[in-house]
Design a protein around this nucleic acid. Structure first.
Lengths: 198, 198
DNA sequence: TCCGGACTGGGACGACCGTCCCACTTCGGT
DNA sequence: ACCGAAGTGGGACGGTCGTCCCAGTCCGGA
């Protein structure tokens, strides 16, 4: 009824698609389910998106781009590097616990992107972004703890991403908070050994 | 044409389904794609399976049950625990590299199972199995290296599963062998610190 | 040899999917 | 006040999905 300009409608549909994907998975995020969530008609969908795939692609791009501060920890000084890293990872874990379905949808989005050659780059960009965020957190932690990374931060960051990913999947399956915290502890300890006092 | 008894047909269909799922993903593993892969008609499918979901469930169960020796490393003595663990993880990594699509399908299967409440237990069983295999490898490594685990092996195993899972996903995305090996190295180092000399 | 159950092939069904079309309404600029 | 563009609603189309049905074929035991 109320008329909405195309660009606004695009982002409204992307938000709706994200909610639907979190609730029922991307496979079930049909055009009809998305427009129902957004309270629109199918025509409005195809007025602003050529295809569902175009929306999914933009969904990945958008969500990855905004993944910002959620995971960047605020670190209080006076702690060892290992402690800083652990509280950083635990911070991410709290974020995961706060909205597990969102993170599950992110995982599905990656798998989805990996399944078609022309979408592979989206998965790569997603993980490049994760690594970039991890890198920033690691630099911050090193600064606060007054240490320097022995190997390039980007490489440490790549390991951190792998560890948090593993933490995510296993927790999504068994929902074992203690086990996840143990992973965080061990991972932080391992990463902290990759730095030297300044 | 050639007549096949029902139990044989069941397993033939499951094998076919696994191949299809590895090739194109579970979402695209339709009943028609599966019977085409198995060289049967749709009627044969529903003669032995009530529904596609029943096959998928049995697919998960079957594949998880047989996941056996693939990941259990054969360890040569004379190495430190960290070295043993690293070569074990690298062994898994080689297994992953040998058939990435299979591991990708396993990941999709997990996500699929997590999406419906009545299938959640399948994902749990899958990871319980992973943990069990990890546990056996860890016990073996500890024996060869003549050390004992400071905390319950099952807890160490759970961490190892998380680490290998993280290694798997990140590598499936960026296919960076060196980075994966770095993850293996760091993970092995971290785990080795959870044991004491005997 | 026959008969009942096991198995097969092909076609059909209803549901849902992504996409498209077209008549209609609203809006901003002139 | 008017007009072209922007936006909307509803219905339809072709395709694919899971599932089902049924007439037929094969086989082993009586």
């Amino acid at each position: 009824m109320t008329r909405i300009p195309a660009p606004e409608r695009r982002s409204a549909l992307i938000e709706a698609a994200l909610r639907v994907a979190a609730r029922v998975g991307i496979a079930q995020a049909t055009t009809r389910a998305i427009v129902a969530e957004a309270g629109m008609s199918l025509a409005s969908f195809h007025y602003v998106f050529d295809s569902r795939d175009e929306l999914i692609d933009e969904l990945i791009t958008t969500v990855v781009a905004r993944e910002q501060q959620a995971v960047i920890p605020d670190l209080s000084p006076g702690q060892s590097l290992a402690e800083l890293l652990e509280s950083g990872i635990v911070g991410y874990f709290e974020h995961l616990k706060a909205d597990p379905e969102h993170e599950q949808a992110m995982l599905e989005l990656t798998q989805y992107a990996l399944r078609s050659p022309e979408r592979r780059s989206l998965a790569l960009a997603q993980y490049a972004r994760y690594t970039e965020l991890a890198e920033r957190s690691l630099e911050l932690a090193a600064e606060v703890a007054d240490v320097t990374w022995r190997i390039p931060v980007s490489e440490v960051a790549r390991v951190l991403v792998a560890f948090t990913d593993g933490l995510t999947i296993t927790w999504l399956v068994d929902r074992d908070d203690d086990a996840a915290r143990a992973v965080a502890h061990v991972a932080a300890d391992a990463l902290s050994r990759m730095a030297d006092p300044r």
